[in-house]
Simulated assay, not measured.
Amino acid sequence: MTVEVSRTKRLRQQLPDAFRLPTDRDPAPEPRHLAAVCGWAALLGLGGMAVALRAFVGLVSASRGWYAPTVIVIGLVGLACTIAAFASVHQRRLPFALLGAASVSLLLGWIVTGL
């Protein structure tokens, strides 16, 4: 029980530092780092448009009760991870971990819309 409390307390302290708007005192992110995040996010956006088109066709052509909520949740998770990557661009590895999670979400969306 004590381990969970300390882990929760530590997480509450670290999250606001990881996801915050930069201030004037923060250094600008390295241009290569920012370009890598932007490029990866752009590829996710293009892939997301393809998945959205497939999802639209799936919604129009078939009536499956689970399809719409599943596609919407997968898309929102991917979008939230991509937004969080930009919010944490001043961190070193966190944006790439979040973009990796968004990529997994995109892959899941591709699989689900292909069914």
Rank of each mutant, 00 (worst) to 15 (best):
R54T: 09
P69V: 08
A55M: 15
G58A: 11
S88D: 07
V71Y: 02
A55C: 13
A55L: 12
F86K: 01
A68C: 13
R64K: 13
G78T: 08
W66G: 10
S63C: 15
L53P: 10
S88H: 08
V73W: 01
S61V: 15
L53H: 11
C81N: 03
P69T: 06
A87G: 11
T70H: 00
A85T: 04
P69E: 00
V57H: 05
S61I: 12
A87M: 14
F56Y: 09
G58Q: 04
R54F: 14
G58I: 12
G78H: 00
V57G: 09
A68K: 06
I72C: 07
G65R: 01
L79F: 08
G75L: 06
T82D: 05
F56N: 10
R54Y: 12
A80Q: 00
W66H: 04
A85F: 08
F86Y: 09
A80L: 12
V73Y: 05
G78M: 07
A80M: 10
S63I: 13
V71M: 11
A85Q: 02
F86S: 08
V77M: 04
Y67S: 07
V57N: 03
A68I: 10
V73F: 07
L53A: 13
V77A: 07
R54C: 14
L59H: 01
V71L: 00
I74G: 03
T70Q: 04
I83G: 01
S61W: 11
T82I: 09
L59C: 06
G65C: 07
G75M: 05
A55E: 10
G58L: 13
R64Y: 11
P69G: 07
A62V: 09
S63W: 14
G58W: 07
V60D: 03
V71G: 00
G75T: 05
R64C: 12
A62K: 02
G58S: 12
T82N: 02
S63Y: 12
V60S: 07
C81I: 04
I74F: 03
A87V: 14
A80K: 02
P69Y: 03
